[in-house]
Amino acid sequence: MVYRASTLGSIASSLLSSGSWGTTISVFHTTVNIRMGGDLLTVTSKMTRSPLNINVKPHDSYVGRGLTRGSRISFDGSQLDMGYAAVEIGDHDIYENDIAKPSRNSFVELSGKEKSLALALLLVQKEGSAASPSFPRRDFVARLLREGGSRTMLMGLVGAGQGYTPSGDDFISGYLAARNDLSEASGLGSIVLPCHEVERITVWVSAELLCYAQRLVVDEVVEGALNSISAGDAYGLMDAISSLAARGHSSGVDTAAGLLVALFEAMDSALGGSRAASLASVLGL
């Protein structure tokens, strides 16, 4: 089977131009994660774009066929050889993040819509997800909501929970993407976790995604959420929450929860109030 690349992420494109081979780290039906030169490259037949992705056509096809963990993937300059399958790079679009700068006015626009946003998240909450009462480290999340996030508190969530990318990691990815994007507007400052330590605690792919997210390298749905926040567009943010909801075991809702927690914390800082603590009550934490 020969697949055709429809979009190359900006980072994926750089990786291909510098590397000639890699090794599969995880293989799913529609997604293959590859370690190439110490970086993550994802080949996926799903449509969501990311700087790390090579999106291939036909969509939703079985790109993982015939591959196992540790399979060698090679690139000859025009084609990615993936065992039984190949991906022709050819003509393609390049995708890179374009994240707007939020301001205090973004928070003012969103003010008054916090309960709707919290309810949108509650409606799609899943058993065992990071912001649910059944999450093993719910006390960390509850404390974070009441006291605000810190590097130590976040490190306590790394690797926690279920899923290929553990719920805690997905929550932190969403949290840090929003926290760091909003850091100037909120005055809270950014948080960057040490990637070598994160890698030691959790699975490699999850650590990579988390470390990119804290540098605001995110997929287009999370980018859409961040841009909705900047634009003060609560409906856009709800749209992103509903788009994230079905992702993975609970990866999407964990990411959405992290985004919303960071937003409420930032709004509390910029405008005063106790939105984050109220969110804890809505979520039953």
Binding site: K113, K115, S116, L117, A118, L119, A120, L123, V124, Y235, M238, D239, S242, S243, A246
Partner: peptide
């Protein structure tokens, strides 16, 4: 299509999230 369910979620959150 999932879009109509997404629209309903937003409206639901607006109506009941008060």
């Amino acid at each position: 299509p999932v879009e109509m369910f997404k629209k309903a979620l937003k409206r639901y959150a607006e109506v009941y999230g008060v």
